[in-house]
Structures are given as structure tokens and as C-alpha cells.
């Protein structure tokens, strides 16, 4: 039996503005299983970032509820790397620990281990401008992992990268996440990226977001994202979900 670490019940989100109420999320319910890589796809502006912001308590919800253990630690990796240009790579990586005042020797050692493991240790005293987009993204991931989250929220983590580094970095990030055995909710509007990484995909409708369908992704040989793109079942999922997304060109 799978352990559930999070349950979302009938979540509704409205934004109040002077131009009127914007219904961003209509009604959404789903569970998150421990250790899974859950991907949420939906067209742009449908409410994906809103959902992650609510899960990490940066936005309040309008209706419904979220059931989770109080001890559940959530790490949020944003749409851009958001590294601070005036801090070194090392200082950026421990930023969360500093802010949360949990920069204990043990936690710092963990960051150093991660920097070494993911080939960033030699750059620890360099500044973000000296690193490639992919390396910066890995630093941002380590900054998020440093606070030892049980659940990782990834908001289109690769959207700022060009196509080639996007493939390579998503491979890297995927391996890191699997190795560190984290539960993930990732949102994206890139369908191929979703299928190549996900254990499960939730397809959202256009705004206001509702759940259109949920897919268990069962590839023939599940491997790393780049290899998964060559899987026999990849294009079958692609066609099915493409139809659900109902993209008007």
C-alpha cells in the first residue's frame, strides 16, 4: 500500500481584484503518494503556479482543505533559479539554512556533500554569473534540498533554459531527486518533459483549473528522462494527453 503524504480536498482559489473576482482554480482534489514523481500539466495561465503557492503557504486558499502532517517539510523550487548575484555559489546554496537559522554544522556538511556530488564544489567561491544555466539550476536545487524537504515543489524548473540544456539538466535534476529519494510535485506545460519524468500525470483544464484526467505513466523500460523519450509507449501517452489538453492553435 502506498503511503499518502498529502491530500487536497475540493480546493478552490479566487483572486480578488478591482476588476472583479478571478476564479483561478475551480475545484481540485488529489492525493500525493510518498516517493512519487507527480507532474501537473496544463496550459499557460491555468493556475499551476497558484496551486504550488497554496501548497507552500504563500497564498491562502478560498475553499476546501489540505490534509498533511504538521511535520511535513516542503521545499519550493521556483520558475527561475533566483540565485543572488552578490553571493557566492556556496553562500547561495546555504541561503535557506541561514534564513531559517538552521545552519548547523550537520546541515552545512550536507550542502557540501551535495555540492561535491553534483560537481559544483570547485565553483563554490565563484559567483552565479560565472556558471552556466544548468549549473545555476543545480545550485537552486541544492539550495532547496538543503532544508531537507520531504516534498519538493518544482515550478517549471527548466523553462528558462534552451532546449539542449533543458534535456541535460532535467536528466541531472531527475537523478538527484531520485537519489535523494524525494517526493515531487512538478508543474510544467511541456508535455514531453512531463511524460519523460513522471510516475503520474495530472492534466488540468484551462482556467479555472479542474482535473481533466489522471494518468499512471507505465513505460516499457523506465529509466532516465532522456532515455524515456525513446520509450515505445512515449508517443502513445503524448497523443492521449495532447488531446486532453485541447490546445487551440
Amino acid at each position: 500500500m502506498k503511503n499518502k503524504i498529502l491530500r487536497i480536498n475540493n480546493l478552490v482559489k479566487n483572486y480578488n481584484t478591482m476588476r472583479g473576482e478571478i476564479n483561478a482554480i475551480k475545484e481540485i482534489s488529489f492525493d500525493v503518494n510518498e516517493g512519487e514523481f507527480l507532474v501537473i500539466v496544463g496550459s499557460s495561465g491555468c493556475g499551476k503556479s497558484t496551486l504550488l503557492s497554496i501548497l507552500s503557504d504563500l497564498e491562502t486558499l478560498t475553499e476546501g482543505n489540505i490534509l498533511k502532517n504538521d511535520s511535513l517539510k516542503i521545499g519550493y523550487m521556483l520558475q527561475e533559479d533566483a540565485l543572488l548575484p552578490w553571493l557566492t555559489i556556496y553562500e547561495n546554496a546555504i541561503l535557506g539554512l541561514k534564513i531559517k537559522k538552521i545552519d548547523t554544522q550537520e546541515n552545512i556538511d550536507e550542502v557540501i556533500r551535495l555540492l561535491k556530488l553534483y560537481n559544483l564544489y570547485d565553483f563554490k567561491d565563484k559567483y552565479p554569473k560565472n556558471l552556466s544555466g544548468g549549473m545555476k539550476q543545480r545550485v537552486a536545487l541544492i539550495r532547496t534540498l538543503a532544508i531537507k524537504p520531504d516534498l519538493l515543489l518544482l515550478d517549471e524548473p527548466f523553462s528558462a533554459l534552451d532546449y539542449q540544456s533543458r534535456l541535460a539538466v532535467s536528466d541531472d535534476v531527475y537523478k538527484i531527486i531520485k537519489k535523494e529519494k524525494k517526493t515531487v510535485i512538478m508543474v510544467t506545460h511541456d508535455l514531453a518533459e512531463a511524460i519523460s519524468m513522471a510516475d503520474r500525470i495530472i492534466v488540468l483544464s484551462k482556467r479555472p483549473a479542474t482535473i481533466k484526467k489522471i494518468y499512471d505513466i507505465k513505460l516499457e523500460h523506465k529509466g532516465t528522462p532522456i532515455n524515456n523519450r525513446k520509450d515505445g509507449k512515449f508517443s502513445k501517452y503524448y497523443d492521449m494527453i495532447w488531446r486532453d489538453l485541447d490546445v487551440n492553435i
Binding site: 503557492s53 507552500s56 504563500l58 519550493y76 521556483l78 520558475q79 527561475e80 533566483a82 543572488l84 541561503l95 535557506g96 534564513i99 531559517k100 532544508i147
Partner: peptide, 14 residues
């Protein structure tokens, strides 16, 4: 200052 960076700080409960 970039909104994303502010969001980052908020996500760490700064």
C-alpha cells in the same frame, strides 16, 4: 527587485 527572489525568501519564511 525581482518578484521571484521575494517569493524565494517568502518560501523560506524570511
Amino acid at each position: 527587485i525581482d518578484d521571484v527572489k521575494i517569493k524565494l525568501f517568502k518560501s523560506f519564511r524570511a
